[in-house]
Design a protein around this nucleic acid. Structure first.
Length: 223
DNA sequence: AAGCGACACAACCGCTGCTTT
DNA sequence: GAAAGCAGCGGTTGTGTCGCT
C-alpha cells in the first residue's frame, strides 16, 4: 500500500543518480541511519522517492557492497541456491556477502540464464503467490521469514510444493528443530533453508567464518 | 566515423506483508 | 478489526556501453 502518486511526488526526480545526490544520501544515512525512507528525500534534500533512495543505498551506496564480477565460488552458489529456492533473490543474496538481490538477479538474467536455459520461466508464470499463515496453522515463523513465494516461474515446482507443505517442519523460532537423522532428506528443502536463515538470526554457526557456510547436512543438497 | 544491435546493469513499478494508529 | 503507512521483494524497463558492420 504505497502512496507514491501524490501531487508532491509527481515532482520527484527519476532516472540515474548523480554523484551529488549519492553524496547527499550517503551523508544522510551515515548520520541518521537507515530506515524512514519515506522522509529521507525531504530531510536529505533529495527530490527522490523513498523507494528510490532505499534502492540506491541498498544496491549501490552501502559501504559493504562488493563491486566487480562474480567469483566462480559465488556463481556456483547462486546456481545451487537457485536450483533449490527459485527466484528468491534476496534469500540467495543473503548467502553472498556484499552482493545485493538486484545484482544476483541481474547476474542470473544476463549471464546464467544463457548458460542454463532450462531454468527459463515459461509465459504462464503467475505473479508472486501468497503463502498465507492460515495455510500453515502450525507455522510460527517470525516476520523475518519469507512468507511470500513465487509460483512455478522456473519450472521448478518441487521446492515450492515443499514449501507449501511446511506443516511437516517445526518452525518455532524459539526452538527450531531439525528433522531427526534418517528422515532428513525426505523433508522439504526450502523450510530447511529458511531455518538456516532463522538460525543465523540466532547466531548459530557463527563460529564458522566462511561466508559460504552451510551446515554439513546441507552439502548433499547443494551438490 | 557512423549506425546499429546486443548486452549489462541501474532504476522503476506493482504488489505484498508487517506494523502502527 | 480496519485503515493507513512503511519497508521490502521480484519482475520489468530504461539507459549507457561496447563491438560489429
Amino acid at each position: 500500500m504505497e502512496r507514491e502518486g501524490t501531487k508532491q511526488e509527481l515532482k520527484l526526480k527519476k532516472g540515474p543518480w548523480k554523484p551529488e545526490e549519492d553524496l547527499l544520501l550517503k551523508k544522510y544515512v551515515e548520520t541518521c541511519g537507515e530506515g524512514k525512507w519515506g522522509t529521507v528525500s525531504k530531510r536529505a534534500g533529495l527530490m527522490r522517492g523513498g523507494k528510490s533512495c532505499r534502492l540506491r543505498w541498498k544496491n549501490y551506496l552501502r559501504p559493504d557492497i562488493k563491486r566487480g564480477g562474480m567469483s566462480e565460488e559465488e556463481e556456483d552458489l547462486i546456481i545451487r541456491m537457485h536450483k533449490l529456492l527459485g527466484n528468491r533473490w534476496s534469500l540467495i543474496a543473503g548467502r553472498l556477502p556484499g552482493r545485493t538481490d538486484n545484482e544476483v538477479k541481474n547476474y542470473w538474467n544476463t549471464h546464467l540464464m544463457k548458460r542454463y536455459p532450462q531454468y527459463k520461466r515459461d509465459d504462464s508464470r503467475s505473479k508472486r503467490r501468497k503463502l498465507s499463515h492460515s495455510d500453515n496453522s502450525t507455522n510460527t515463523c517470525g516476520p523475518s521469514s519469507t512468507n511470500t513465494i513465487k509460483g512455478s516461474d522456473e519450472g521448478n515446482d518441487e521446492p515450492i510444493a515443499a514449501l507449501n507443505n511446511m506443516n511437516s517442519f517445526n518452525y518455532d523460532p524459539e526452538s527450531p528443530q531439525f528433522p531427526s537423522e534418517g528422515e532428513f532428506y525426505e523433508e522439504p528443502v526450502l523450510p530447511l533453508l529458511d531455518s538456516i536463515v532463522l538460525l543465523e538470526s540466532f547466531k548459530c554457526g557463527a563460529e564458522n567464518s566462511s561466508p559460504f557456510y552451510f551446515p554439513e547436512e546441507m552439502y548433499p543438497l547443494l551438490l
